[in-house]
Each structure stands twice: as C-alpha cells, then as structure tokens.
Design a binder for these strands. Sequence first.
RNA 1: GCCGCUGUGGUGGAACUGGUAGACACGCACGACUCAAAAUCGUGUGGGAGUAAUCCCUUGUCGGUUCGACUCCGACCAGCGGCACCA
Length: 887
Amino acid sequence: MVSEKYNPEKVEKRWQKAWLRAKIFKAPDFPKKTKAYVLDMFPYPSGEGLHVGHPEGYTASDIYTRFLRMQGQEVLHPMGWDAFGLPAENYALKTGTPPAETLKKNIKNFKKQIQALGFSYDWSREINTTDPNYYQWTQWIFVQLFKRGLAYEAFAPINWCPKDKTGLANEEVVGGKCERCGTEVVRKNIRQWLVKITDSKYIERLLKDLDKLDWPESIKHLQRNWIGKSEGALVDFELVTKNQEPADKFKVPSLKSPVIRVFTTRPDTLFGATYLVLSPEHPLVEAVTTSENRKAVEDYQKQAAKKSDLDRTDLAKEKTGVFTGGYAINPVNNEKIPIWIADYVLSSYGTGAIMAVPAHDERDFEFAKKFKLPIIQVIDPDLSSRENTANAITGGASAAILDAHSEKIASVAPLPRNDKEVYIGEGVMVNSGKYDGMNSVEFKKKIVEWLENHDKGKRAVNYKLRDWVFSRQRYWGEPIPIVHCEKCGNVALPEKDLPLKLPQVKNYQPTGTGESPLASIKEWVNAKCPKCGGRAKRETNTMPQWAGSNWYFLRYVDPKNGKQLADPEKLKAWLPVDLYVGGAEHAVLHLLYARFIYKFLFDIGVVPKECGDEPFVKLKNQGLILGEDNQKMSKSRGNVVNPDEVIKQYGADTMRMYEMFMGPFEDAKPWNTKGIVGIQRFLGIKEGKGYVDRVFTVIKQVAEDVQAGKLSSKNGFSKSIHSTIKKITEDIENFRFNTCISELMIFFNGKDGKPDWRPKLNKKGEWEAVGEIGKAVDMDALRAFLKLLSPFAPHLAEELWQKLGKKDFICQQTWPKHDEQRIKAKEIEIPIQINGKVRDKILVASDVPEAELKKMVLANVKIKKWLVGKPIKSFRYVRDRIISLAV
RNA sequence: GCCGCUGUGGUGGAACUGGUAGACACGCACGACUCAAAAUCGUGUGGGAGUAAUCCCUUGUCGGUUCGACUCCGACCAGCGGCACCA
C-alpha cells in the first residue's frame, strides 16, 4: 500500500537546489551545438511582487527551453530586472526611502518567487538596468546617437501636470489625467532631448523589415499603423497678400512670392481645394492675417494654446476656426481661395497646413458646412451615375457646368452643398478642367508630374511616427551624459568618464521648474566642459524607462564586460534572439524602440553583421489572465490571484501546468481556482488519506513493485506511446501547451486503444493491478511518458525519474522520438454519411480496396434502411476518413 | 469613426490542409468508501422525443458554395483590443 504522499513543497525545493548545484542551466559563452536564444521580457520588480500573469509567459518559455535542451540544443535563457522608473521614485517621494533600497528588496522578493516556480534560467547572467556597470552602456549608446546627430535637444510640447509640476510620459497619462494626482494634463513646451527614430536612414527599414519577422500579424499591423506611412505630394500655394517675408523653410527657391506649402495624400482632388487651413501655431499665420482679422486670430491662437490635448482631439466637439483675411492661389486653376486657421490641423504633422477639399474629406466637409465655404465635387464615383451626381452637387441648378471644361469652373460652381455626404473613393474626374473624364488614379500621377514640372510641388512621403521624446524631468533614471558649455554648446562626456553615476539626493520632489531633482545638487550640476575645460552645466533630465530595456538582451551575452557593451564574438555566438515571449502591450513602444536601437548598433558595427539587423526573429505574446469574474485583474476589483498562495497550496508544478492548461497561450482567459484540482488530481495529491490513482502514486508504486518482483517489466516501447510523442512534440513546437497536457492525460487514463495505467482500488482499499499493468509494465513507455511530462512538471518528473532508479537528471535526457509506422492502425473505424449525416460506422482494414468497401457498405443493414427506394447519386471514399453517399 | 481579433455545452476549452462537433478538464447528478462530512474513486452528463433501438435539433444570426461547413464566401449582430481630426 502506498504510504508516501506527494509533497510538492519538499520535493520542489530539493530539485531546485540540485539543479542550481549542478549548474545545468548555465549557458556557455560559445555554444558547440545548435544554439537557441529564448528570451522573456524582463519584469519591473514592483513592490507588489509577481502576479499570475508573469508566470504564464515564463512557464511557456521555460517549457520551450527545456524541450529544446532535451532535443540537443544549447539554450541561452536569462532573466534580469528593468528597475528604473516611476513606482520606486513615487515611493521615495512618500517615504523618503531611496529607490535603490526599495528595489533591492523588491528584486530579492521577485527572484525568490520566480525561482520557486522552477524556471531554468541561467542566473549567472542576471542583469539590472540600474547597476552603474549596466547603465554605463545605456549612456554609451546615447553618446553614440548624439555624435551621429540622432539625439538632439529641442523644445517639444509634452504632457505637463500643473499640480505635480512635472512632465509626464505618455504612459503616465490616463484618460487625459495625471496618473498620480488625477489633475488634467496640459501641453507645455519645454526643453527636451529627442531621438531621431524618424531619420530617413531608419524609418523605412523599421517599416519594411517587419515583413521578414515571424511575429503575430496583429503586432506587425500595430507597428505599421504606428509608423503610419502615407504617400502624397507637397503643394505650394502662393500668397495673395504679401505683408511680410515668410520664414525660409516655407519658401521654394524658384518662386519669388511667399508660399504656403501643404501636404496632401490626395493631389487628385486639387481642383476641389476651396480654402487652406493653417494650424494655430503655423509660423505664417501672422504674415497672412490682415489687420481687421488680427484680434480674432490672436484670440483663437491663445485659446488653442490653452487647450489640453484631450480637448483638442475630442471628436465630439464641433470644429472651430477663424478666417485670417488672407488668400492664396490654387496652383492648378489659379483660383483665389481663403486662408483659415483651425485647431483640427495639427502643427506636428506634415507641414502644419492643409488644402481643404470639402467634397472629398469628411473633416473639411464638416468645417466647410459650418463656415459656409464652397464645396466642389471633383471626383465622380461612377461615370454612369454622372448625371445624377451632377444634379446633386449643383442642386440641379446647372448641370451644364460639368461639361463646360472651363479653367474657371471653381468660380462658376461654388454652390454650397449641405445635404450630400462626402465621397472619398476613386472615380472619374469632374470639375477639373481639361482633365475631366480621366480616371482619378491616373490623374493623381499626372497632376503630381505637372506640379513637379511647374515647380509648384513634388511627390512626398509622410509618417505619423514622431521623434522619440527621450528625457524625463525625473530622478530615478539614467543621467543623460551631456554637459552644456557656455562656449562649445552641448558636449557629450568622453567614454572614459562613463558611467555618469546618478547621485544620491535628499529630496525627490521635482523642483517645479521642469527640471529634475538633480538640478538642485549644485556640486553635481556644475562641471567642466570636456572640450574646452571651461564652465559648464550638466544635463539634469534623465532617460526614460525604455532606455535600459531597448538593448538589455545584448548584455546577457556578456553581462560583466567592463570594456565594451558586449564582446562581438559572443554576440555572434548567440544573437539574434530566436524566441521572444512577452505581453502584447509592448507592441509599439518597447518592441519598436528595441528594433531601432538594434539597427543603429548594427549600423555602427557594435552588433556584428552575422547577427542580422533585426533583434527578435520570432515573437509570441501571452494572453492576459483575467480574474475569476472575467475582468482584468486589479486591486480595486479585488479579483487578484496571488501566485505565492497557489504555489503554497498546490505546488509549482501544478501551478505551471494549470496556467498552460487554461487555454491557448495567446488568448485572454479567466482564472478559475476550482479548475486547478484537475491538474492536481492528475499529478498527485498533497494531502488526504484516500488512495490516489494518478501520476505520482502510480509510477512510484510501479517502480517499487517491479523492484520487489511483484510485477514483471516489459521493455519494447509499446505503440501507445508513439502517437503521444508525436502530438506533444508538434504541440510544443507550436506553443499549443493546453493540448499537450490533455494528451498527457489521455495517455495515462487509457483510451483509443491505449492501456489504462490506472490501478483499481479493491474493496479492502488496497491497490490492485488490473489491465495492462497487471500483466507487465512497459517501462520504456513509462520512461518516455515521464520525459514528455518533464518540461511541464519538472520537479515531479525528476522525483519519479529517481524513483525509477535513475541517478542522472531527467531534464538532461534525450527527447523521445516516435515511429510513424507504429502509429498506423491496422483496423480503422470509418463513419458512413448519407447526405451529410452519419448513419453508421464500419470497422475495416486500413488498406481495404474501395470496391470491396462499397460492397460492405451497401450490404450494411442500417445503411440499407436509408437507401430504400432511392437511387445512389454518388459514392465517395476519403481514405481512412469517411464514406459519403448522396441519394 | 477607422483598423484588427473573437463568438462552440452550465464553465475553461478540443476539432489536422472542409470529413464522426463537444477531446481534455471543471462543475453537476447518482453510486462506492465513511457513523457522517471532506478528500478520493466509479458511472453518467449539449438540448428535445422515446421503456428502448432510434430519430430530430445544435458551433452568435441570416443566406450561399459543397456529397459534406465550427472551418470557405457574403450580409448583419455582439464582445474585446488598438488608433483616434495624421490631411
């Protein structure tokens, strides 16, 4: 009788120690066999500790890692800490505890929790972004960017919290309000450091190279949208009023008079441009405004400046704007059109000015309707409906206008059209002078050529992506290694002076001037210029959290290198990352920044050519684990599950397997504590006096009984295991862990011709061997089963491996291989369908000829019943699958 | 508003390139063990009709293609996620 109960608490700790002692997860610097780099997104070690979402991704990557190792690969599987950032600093503001201290505690706790789950990380490579030996290289990368003009200082509007008197990152603004105090955020133009991610050397590659990545399509799609490429044209509109010389950058050299340059993706609608709109911040506003409109324009500008981003982009609000009094000339038809300013035109996109085509753009249409500006249709959706449309546009007033082919159509036709909707598609040109009747797609090319030939515009590409605001008015981040010298301007620190250490401060409160708390440390701020030795001041902004995380995966390869970011030979040996596992919430931030920095490092030769210029070959996103109420887990909802308690109650193996069993890895799925018992029953039960018929107890009992001579052992790898090996191998490769686990259960429970491994309890409460194992135990199959189980439940697998008399580690065994021949059944059951409905099943030899099968089917009593009086229209046999009759 | 994803029993979910829908697990019901309960084990479990054999219905809704549709096509509905005046 089995007396020993499975005790995960003891067993798991024992094996964790044994693994650590044997250093079996330590990756070599230079792998000799096939290499695999399996990476988890490293966590921010918050004070709250792990939540159940963390182990989901870590378990999946661990299963995959263990699987690859058993398949004979050498795997780099590291872990570290992304430890700069707000929570620790906020905590310091409240309590005065230095962030470094808080984090030391948090990391210790996180590490303990992660290790309790038995993940096979190489802890000798652990990194921490707040370690000066680490951020020395984060700063070094910044200096390289700066030297090449890719990091620059500028005034940029940022989110500003008026109460906390600090700039906020986008991710700290929730619903237009400050995450910390709830105050509505305003826009403030302050000095910033920006990184030129939009540089022409990179932006197109960031877009195009997505094609070669094995990432979820949805993530690639998100990045493409975020980059937001649009192709169109820049068009110059000459000003009619010439009060003043415009700023140089808006002047096309070959033109003598000042122009307003607009960007449009629809040059084909140029004949329908009935007015121009400048953003309120546009530098030419003053120049075009007439004296009688000046007051209204200036008032509007002031109002717009006061508005928060939220107000400005609120679509529910009606469009606003004012007329400047100025006019410009539409280059294609020489019409004089009014210039307005409105805050629906953004200063930061394109040229900050647009040509408005109300007939073919919804926003322009809305604006034109409100301010009674002319609406001229220039694209007809369909030639055949042309007459109807003509009536619609002109309100039936003058259909003849459409055929007038006049260069001056615009002045004849501006009948305001308030009823019809906007048409944004392709079609046939109308009201477009000599181009009428031309297909709009063709016309688009033609008119751009015309603009280029006449020096009035040119083909152009625009992107939504903006340069990356790279500074924070915060304390807990990497200091930006730049000094401002009175004579030399901005000067980067020489590499030998890195790291520029973050000094200790007494007060973490922002200064209120938009500077970080560092600004108040005089002895730190005042520095010598590295170039001229003269007086200089240090930059007091710090880097954003993304700075440390966009290259950390390079450092794991060579975590202690003091001379360079990482040894190129070691990078060659391990990079790129073969599999990256993490949450989808990083789709456009971390994953885009990391790609950019990697490409940059590739270009300057830090990342060797052999590694390629994309860091993450394959990406898998874990789905969110929801609370039991199917809602996102959050403290306020009270539906947070604490993994510590789950591990304590059920053990790490059960926790790991349950998380994998819940559903598809990439889907969001609700936690259900009751469901855990299914896994628990399968693996082994910790307490309770009843007999347990699952993995732990059975294998242990079998091992003991075989050794005691009570059962005979039969070697020879019975066929039942082969389909199990095949299924599990394929499913791990495809991250389908939920079905792996059900397959493990099926193998053990016995079904589909597989033996039932479960012993039966007799009346006396004693174990009684029946069925397959009553005769002889197939030890080879049992050992293979344990190997298949081992990536999922590594501790239990080691324990039972040992009980089977093995002295080595199961996690270092070779993954079993299946024999395709032994999976094929000699006899198969084939369903018979009549008109798509299954009426019977027939047991036949798998190689039965179709003619013979047909005879058998037609002779079948149940089938005959359905065929009475009906001629058979067709008989179809899909080998080994189905017989289908139509009557 | 635009883009993307997802809709299968009481629940989480299976179903290979179109081929027996509901694997596996939870829950529930009944039974065994127990003085009893818990734990454990066994049997059953999509809905409906029938003692039964068996039959009908069923993968968000409606239609289409096919011998055959959860799977492919079209329209619609619902939920989730992202972007949000990007010209």
